[in-house]
Design a protein around this nucleic acid. Sequence first.
DNA 1: CTTCTGTATGTTATAGCATAACAGGTCAAG
DNA 2: CTTGACCTGTTATGCTATAACATACAGAAG
Lengths: 162, 162
Amino acid sequence: MHEHAISAFAAHDHAHCSGDVLAQAEAMVVAEGLRLTPVRRRVLEILLEAHRALGAYDVLNRLAAEGFGNQPPVVYRALDFLVEHGLAHRIQRLNAFAACMHPGTAHAPVFLICRTCHVVAEADGASVGSALVVAAGAAGFAVERSTVEALGLCPQCRAVPA
Amino acid sequence: MHEHAISAFAAHDHAHCSGDVLAQAEAMVVAEGLRLTPVRRRVLEILLEAHRALGAYDVLNRLAAEGFGNQPPVVYRALDFLVEHGLAHRIQRLNAFAACMHPGTAHAPVFLICRTCHVVAEADGASVGSALVVAAGAAGFAVERSTVEALGLCPQCRAVPA
DNA sequence: CTTCTGTATGTTATAGCATAACAGGTCAAG
DNA sequence: CTTGACCTGTTATGCTATAACATACAGAAG
């Protein structure tokens, strides 16, 4: 599981990884008795194809161009569904959404956002999460959900300074 | 420095802690050759008085009621200044802003947001930050800024379940 | 096969958050 | 007293998100 962030930054076959994730998503949705409807599926595909975080309206524009509804609630509902069931994540810092790269796996994701190329990678946040629980516990605070996002430079952009 | 989160949740004299922080802020601003103008100072005071996260328009409404400009850029510029210089923090999850409770101190803040009473406390995030740097480093990512926010229950709200 | 029911989608309207661009004022340095 | 830097004010607009209601559709019950 440690190689996800690395592979997200490395050159790779997007069509292939998207296909894998989509297959996992379908299996997971069926297993839970949920429905990956055309709109939801297409939104997930759009996020997977983009392979970076997209704003809700970016997704909406693509949906509309394909004959789906072109009003905000259409895309927000689909995004809410995906986020709710762990198939996508919301990137608070960007007011944007990104496909989850390993759905079904329990994870406390950490997002690494490159300020140059805008790629968003998902890293294993288990150690960060436990440090957070400890720090919060010292204040008597019970953590239920957490958001951890880092802004910086990805390996490629570090290697090629602007 | 470990007691900040605790004191933020505990009952205390807001006027007193606000005054302290404001004095620290003034000293810090002078030391750096910056200007804590009336609008900026008033915005900071408003955040300190509220003692929780406020939306930009909440702050703007109070400003406007006191004769300052009543257009969004007025408050956003003041908030940007405060955030830029560490006198306030942006809470991404809430699209809101909170005064920094110990300006001048280098810190990687972690925010603890109570989902019931909406109080926001700032905890020491040093351990969380270093875990984050390690996790990101494994992916070759260089962290420059990070956002760590936890949603959950504060001590008071845990004690008195709804 | 039809009706019922829950869920999903479509649509209208509006609310909330944020910034670009330009105009005018203040103040200290030269 | 002019210049230049910075701050404030204002207009206008754009982006993000949701409430509320109407329609459609699939599967279960009869």
